[in-house]
Design a protein around this nucleic acid. Sequence first.
DNA 1: TTGAAAGCGCTAACAC
DNA 2: GTGTTAGCGCTTTCAA
Lengths: 343, 343
Amino acid sequence: MTTGRKRTLTLRDVSEASGVSEMTVSRVLRGKGDVSEATRLKVRDAAKQLGYVPNQIAGALASQRVNLVAVIIPSLANMVFPEVLRGISDTLDGTPLQPVIGVTDYNPEKEERVLYEMLSWRPSGVIVAGLEHSDAARAMLVAAGIPVVEIMDVDGEPIDACVGISHRRAGRLMAEAILENDYTRIGFMGTKMPLDHRARKRFEGLTERLAKGGIEIADQEFYSGGSALAKGREMTQAMLTRTPDLDFLYYSNDMIGAGGLIHLREKGARIPHDIGLAGFNGVELLQGLPVQLATMDACRREIGEAAAQIIAKSCAEDREDAAGERIELQPKLTTGDTLVRGS
Amino acid sequence: MTTGRKRTLTLRDVSEASGVSEMTVSRVLRGKGDVSEATRLKVRDAAKQLGYVPNQIAGALASQRVNLVAVIIPSLANMVFPEVLRGISDTLDGTPLQPVIGVTDYNPEKEERVLYEMLSWRPSGVIVAGLEHSDAARAMLVAAGIPVVEIMDVDGEPIDACVGISHRRAGRLMAEAILENDYTRIGFMGTKMPLDHRARKRFEGLTERLAKGGIEIADQEFYSGGSALAKGREMTQAMLTRTPDLDFLYYSNDMIGAGGLIHLREKGARIPHDIGLAGFNGVELLQGLPVQLATMDACRREIGEAAAQIIAKSCAEDREDAAGERIELQPKLTTGDTLVRGS
DNA sequence: TTGAAAGCGCTAACAC
DNA sequence: GTGTTAGCGCTTTCAA
């Protein structure tokens, strides 16, 4: 290792060190074009020796090509999104593309800012959670002229492509399972959701379908912040104090559901005989609980994979006909031990 | 909105639309230099009208300045890192800097690749988890000539700055708590850790300190993959079958610890009278459990904040003297309900 | 307060 | 197989 330098290395440095023209150095380093084995080696050695790292900024500007895919999600804390990211990342690993993550905190204004920032790097594609965006955000996405995949949800009008599940349908499915098992006094607990559109849609799907079965939600409560497990306990306790005759609790996510489950078991409730429970997401993390919470898988990984494939395809083919795809995945109900009332 | 275009917009388009020179348009859009209110408005309007998004690639190349901070972490699934990221992100929000996340999967080769990719975008700084890197990775970091902050750990030789806790010390502290409470038959459970250096250091700190107290680990088991909660249950059951006289179980993370705790409570074990437990990380998520697992906070958020501050400072001051800082945070032991043997 | 010229480090296109 | 030339879209610098 030589002493610290001020200027970072350029192609020219490698060119001089190897006695090969800049252009050929560039070709070697990118593995493009025919270069003789001899010069290839000379260049590789010189580059390694110097510790040269190419400047993608210059490369991207010159080639008008950026191997980045912007991925915009509401939160990293949510357990759900890291799994989507893994699907994206694994799929992109087989391509020259690289994901770049932006987080919006479920805040439309922040989404707009993040989107602006990311688009100003001229990525090759965008994967963004949800179908609801500000007008400005939609306009940017349209104007960007790159493939856009909206993920997690299919209930709405996509800008370009979309991959997800129907949360309305997921809510309906749960309602049907509830009706089939003759529950009648239903309590709902979830996040405060003015901005969590998917949780809202599930709730709507649930209530609409229950209504058709002649049942209304008997009690409901919304929370924000804090440890989900603890919130689940607290809300469940409070709700059952307030409305003791509930016979089913639907939670908008598995963590609060698990909190409720733990609380009820401690209280000695017979589950699901006295009271049934269900959550949402199919969080693998909870598989160690003594009782398996009924839940619905949101196909997180598959969504990530499919979205990445759409981007990869439309970048590779460099034509627009891969655009506008719409992929609806089917959430799978896992009844676990807390939903089906045994004989 | 006009019809779709092929070419993306440039400064020149805004210049023509507003009748102002490119240079002045650039000044307005960056908010630099004195521009009269009149032209400022003309330019702003034209830009908004067109839906112009500046090209940072060109800007970065011209100005030799990139407002990106590379953040390189082993995993997103780990619960630990999203919190570090939040610390970084919140701190950077008050600056022009933006974090870009790369994930290594605890794989040194992937770390090298990710690092290379990120450095090729010439970020203003790097935050990277851990002090252990391949020679090539270290060389790149040194050669990059930008501030580097290694986080999570301070047991080793940092390249530049570092912020973290001493995991060796954390292990020692736990050993001391174990000795003080007169536990003598200790079992250890953790991830297979050839590459999780921090878990390894904690283990070493633990065993060394216990040895001084005349105690050896009586049994140990390592896992990989799967639901941590479930693994914790299974391993605990297996270990107690194999070595029934254990009176303390130390888990290398809270999730497997929680799995063990749930299992033991189900079995009717009196905790901590019959057997004590402790985990590591201070995962907030578990606060809803009926019994609080003893754990040690790893100062995740603070680490993120401090690291981001170091980067922000040395970028702002644009001098090297902020370099080489070393910040050791102190992990706090939370005894919860599973460590201190009540009178 | 505004504009003109030069060039950031690389690659596309074409010559040799 | 290799080299030359001309930009990519911006910002820096300097002049007006």
